[in-house]
């Protein structure tokens, strides 16, 4: 397997976050009253208010990872936390920022199930603790043909799995999102067959690029981005990145995933980013990087082909979409 070494990207150099913060200060300042009132009426204003209400905490001891993607302009904190697909909190892009503010992420338990040495519940903090936090800058390509570059903070999924010690018969790993309609208003609407579920083949899950993210921009993961812990698999469409995980199950059968259950003609198990296999309703050949005007060409495996293509030798990617 080829792993390209990438030089460190310091997001502070690329994205002027200080500038963003200063802009917010300005907004909150003298002109803030008038501008704020007007902004509150706009679609983004709501999301902005939501992001501010949660409070933000820096994560300690985050080390940069050589597996980060280099040479990309990172999207602003505002874009990453204000434009989300997280249907448990509503289907509009600004719904999660608004509706997830009071979401309770501590205490939080992850239940480990299935073909594994010691099944049972694990508290989130003891789940994360054995691993060093790494910053991973990745491209994120949504199936809806837009993309972002996100500085995640996470732990390698492969290391987590090794620690959990699945049995040799385990071929797949399956993840489930919390299913709590009291906290997640979107669950009261049968848009998908809840709870949200996702899965990976074991070798995909063990791949060094796969991580469980617990933060972004060096801070604790905002609720609307899938707090307290979510999956990030950068060569697959964004919907594979299941959020707010409460169950991890090891199994010998290929799991059904939420979008595949909802519409098997449009969504498959693999969901690898692939510009030559269109979604039946739109082309996947190009994408709009948020913040850019012109579309750009979508790259095979979202540009991570050097690292991951070998996972799929011999697999018909047109049929296994």
């Amino acid at each position: 397997m080829l792993l390209r070494k990438a030089p460190d990207v310091r997001y502070s150099e690329i994205t002027p976050r200080e500038l963003y913060l200063r802009r917010r200060e300005f907004l909150q300042g003298a002109a803030g009253v008038a501008v704020g009132a007007a902004a509150a009426l706009s679609p983004l204003g709501v999301a902005r208010a939501g992001a501010q209400a949660q409070g933000r905490a820096k994560l300690p001891n985050v080390k940069k990872s050589p597996l980060s993607t280099a040479g990309e302009k990172i999207n602003s904190y505002e874009d990453i936390t204000g434009y989300n697909n997280f249907y448990e909190f509503g289907t509009d892009k600004d719904d999660p920022a608004r509706n997830a503010q009071k979401f309770v992420t501590r205490p939080w338990t992850i239940n480990v199930e299935g073909l594994v040495k010691t099944p049972g519940p694990i508290d989130i903090d003891s789940f994360i603790k054995p691993h060093a936090l790494e910053e991973r800058v990745y491209r994120m390509r949504c199936v809806e043909a837009w993309s972002m570059v996100i500085p995640w903070v996470g732990i390698p999924l492969g290391d987590v799995i090794k620690r959990l010690a699945p049995l040799p018969t385990a071929k797949y790993v399956e993840f489930f999102t919390l299913n709590d309609s009291k906290q997640m208003p979107g669950l009261r609407v049968p848009v998908l067959d809840w709870p949200y579920r996702e899965g990976l083949r074991m070798d995909e899950a063990m791949h060094p690029l796969s991580i469980l993210a617990v933060g972004l921009y060096g801070e604790v993961l905002p609720n609307q981005n899938g707090a307290p812990i979510r999956l990030v698999v950068p060569w697959k469409y964004g919907f594979k990145g299941i959020k707010s995980i409460v169950r991890i199950r090891f199994t010998d059968k290929q799991p059904r995933t939420s979008w595949d259950l909802s519409n098997p003609r449009e969504y498959g198990f693999y969901a690898n980013v692939n510009p030559s296999v269109d979604h039946p309703r739109w082309s996947q050949g190009s994408e709009r990087r948020l913040g850019e005007f012109f579309r750009r060409k979508t790259l095979m495996f979202n540009g991570y082909g050097d690292q991951v293509a070998s996972l799929y030798t011999g697999l018909d990617l047109r049929r296994n979409y």
Binding site: V35, A39, K93, D94, L290
Partner: peptide, 12 residues
Amino acid sequence: VYWLFTGNLTAN
């Protein structure tokens, strides 16, 4: 037009 000039047309 108003949202355009106040930068409020969402991230997309």
